[in-house]
Amino acid sequence: MDTIFRGFVEALRLIVELDRSLVEIVGLSLQVSGLALGLSVLLGVPLGVWLGMRRFRGQRLAVATIYTGMGLPPVVVGLVVYLLLSRQGPLGQLGWLFTPRAMVLTQTILSLPLVAGFTMTAINSVPPGLILQLRSLGATPTQVTLTLLYEARAGVLAAVVAGFGAIISEVGSVMIVGGNIAGKTRVLTTAIVLETRKGNFDLAIALGLILLGLTFTANWMLLHLQGRFESTR
């Protein structure tokens, strides 16, 4: 209990003093996870919409694949990406290993299925009659898609929240492909592992609290956005 309290005090101190390495670590965490989330939304939302609207041969396989992807163990993704980017690996020439790029890559792989899967579910939950109605009113396919997306916006937002939550708190893959290098690839979660190993439990808890605060703030903002959506209905 004592450690948690001291960690709380330490967290406040770090935030108030705008500790330089803390700012760096938080900045990189947000950059890496933010970029990965952006890529996942860019690719995952259209994919989810497509899977939710179309019926095609092999759809079940595609959906099962997405669902499996939603539970991918980060360490396994990290390991596979590590082997791909390794000097002897097929993508070794890129020189991405132990850089933020490799971390964005693994986190995109981790959040993409979540964003696509939840978007698909959200689109599925829109009453099917709506599509027919829109078509009979002469809407173009693009208009139909956009209307569906608008109707399903709360669910799509939940997809984004789920994707963000999964990667900002993830440690397994970024540790493996990033290497936790100070000032280069150290993010909040890997810093927590390091401080725990060093026996600096106060600092580890402090970083943990900051991570929680960050996730909470992000979710709060998204929820706020969702609330605004609801009220404009």
Partner: peptide
Amino acid sequence: ESAGQGMGAVLNMAN
């Protein structure tokens, strides 16, 4: 590069 990891991981990174 300050890795903050165990010997095995650091040897991998050096390699």
